[in-house]
Amino acid sequence: MAEVAISPDVLEWARERAGIPFDMLAKRFKRYPSWIDGRGSPTFQQLETLSSVLHLPMGMFFLPEPPEEKLPLPDFRRISEPEVQRPSTELIDTIHICQRRQRWYRDYLAGSGSETLQFVSSAEVGDQPAVVAGHIRTTLKLEVGSRNEAANWEEFLRRFISLARDAGILVMINGVVGMSTAE
């Protein structure tokens, strides 16, 4: 089969982006080390499989150099740690999916003549957190101490989601990222 010319730098970037160790990928793709050294390239079929394994659209492999990839939103995970680890490709994919759904829903609401909810853009960065939290509780009709009335956190979460939906907020739930619940 004919080989597909791809940049070794893009190939290595894709592996690092996916967080897959070199040895693991070399075990799955016997010629991987030679692809990185520029002494060969994968076939189209191998590239399709590699694309799936690395959670990367196939077209990305045809870039002349690795792209500078930015997270689609601020990353507030593990703020206290000096080195924040890059989110998994599955988490990034999930964020992109949710953002597409959010854009669709916004367009849907605009097209159906729905009015903007009063609380949208009602808070600013400099506002006191306690005041903003109070406005959120009022909007959601969430009483202080209502968490204690729930039998467990799952029941409270269901109630919270229901109140958010009743207020007109699009709620997306994803308990599994890829095949992992660890994210």
Results as ranks from 00 to 15, higher is better:
residue 86 R to P: 01
residue 86 R to T: 08
residue 144 V to H: 02
residue 75 D to F: 04
residue 71 L to A: 12
residue 20 I to M: 10
residue 80 S to I: 15
residue 138 T to S: 13
residue 48 E to F: 00
residue 22 F to S: 04
residue 149 E to Q: 05
residue 75 D to W: 09
residue 82 P to K: 02
residue 81 E to I: 12
residue 48 E to N: 05
residue 58 M to P: 01
residue 139 T to I: 04
residue 117 L to Q: 15
residue 101 R to T: 07
residue 169 I to K: 07
residue 146 S to M: 07
residue 65 E to P: 08
residue 56 L to H: 01
residue 8 P to C: 01
residue 15 R to N: 02
residue 147 R to Q: 00
residue 85 Q to E: 13
residue 103 R to N: 12
residue 14 A to R: 03
residue 55 H to V: 03
residue 75 D to Y: 08
residue 80 S to G: 15
residue 143 E to P: 06
residue 38 G to A: 06
residue 168 G to D: 12
residue 89 T to L: 05
residue 60 M to T: 11
residue 94 T to M: 13
residue 145 G to Y: 05
residue 126 G to S: 10
residue 172 M to C: 13
residue 118 Q to C: 09
residue 104 W to L: 10
residue 69 E to C: 01
residue 81 E to K: 14
residue 151 A to R: 14
residue 90 E to D: 15
residue 61 F to S: 00
residue 81 E to A: 13
residue 20 I to R: 06
residue 142 L to F: 06
residue 143 E to S: 05
residue 6 I to D: 02
residue 81 E to L: 14
residue 100 R to K: 12
residue 94 T to N: 11
residue 123 A to S: 14
residue 81 E to P: 01
residue 127 D to M: 02
residue 38 G to N: 04
residue 178 G to F: 11
residue 83 E to V: 14
residue 107 D to G: 07
residue 76 F to W: 11
residue 70 K to C: 01
residue 160 F to Y: 12
residue 15 R to A: 00
residue 13 W to E: 02
residue 175 G to L: 10
residue 76 F to N: 15
residue 108 Y to N: 08
residue 30 K to W: 10
residue 178 G to H: 10
residue 170 L to E: 13
residue 40 G to I: 04
residue 6 I to Q: 02
residue 40 G to N: 03
residue 177 V to D: 03
residue 7 S to M: 01
residue 30 K to C: 05
residue 33 P to T: 04
residue 160 F to H: 07
residue 8 P to H: 05
residue 165 R to K: 15
residue 69 E to P: 04
residue 171 V to E: 14
residue 167 A to M: 06
residue 174 N to V: 11
residue 151 A to N: 13
residue 53 V to L: 09
residue 60 M to N: 10
residue 117 L to N: 13
residue 12 E to S: 15
residue 26 A to H: 07
residue 45 Q to L: 08
residue 106 R to C: 13
residue 95 I to M: 04
residue 91 L to N: 01
residue 107 D to N: 05
residue 146 S to D: 00
residue 178 G to Q: 12
residue 100 R to E: 15
residue 160 F to M: 06
residue 118 Q to D: 04
residue 143 E to T: 08
residue 106 R to W: 11
residue 45 Q to P: 03
residue 165 R to Y: 15
residue 151 A to D: 14
residue 125 V to R: 07
residue 79 I to M: 09
residue 133 A to L: 11
residue 114 S to M: 14
residue 141 K to A: 11
residue 148 N to P: 06
residue 57 P to S: 03
residue 76 F to M: 13
residue 183 E to I: 05
residue 58 M to W: 02
residue 55 H to A: 05
residue 17 R to F: 09
residue 11 L to Y: 00
residue 130 A to P: 02
residue 180 S to I: 12
residue 48 E to C: 09
residue 130 A to Q: 12
residue 43 T to N: 05
residue 36 I to C: 00
residue 119 F to I: 10
residue 37 D to W: 00
residue 64 P to Y: 02
residue 34 S to F: 00
residue 59 G to M: 11
residue 42 P to N: 03
residue 132 V to S: 09
residue 62 F to Y: 02
residue 102 Q to G: 08
residue 118 Q to I: 05
residue 61 F to T: 07
residue 64 P to C: 06
residue 34 S to P: 03
residue 143 E to V: 04
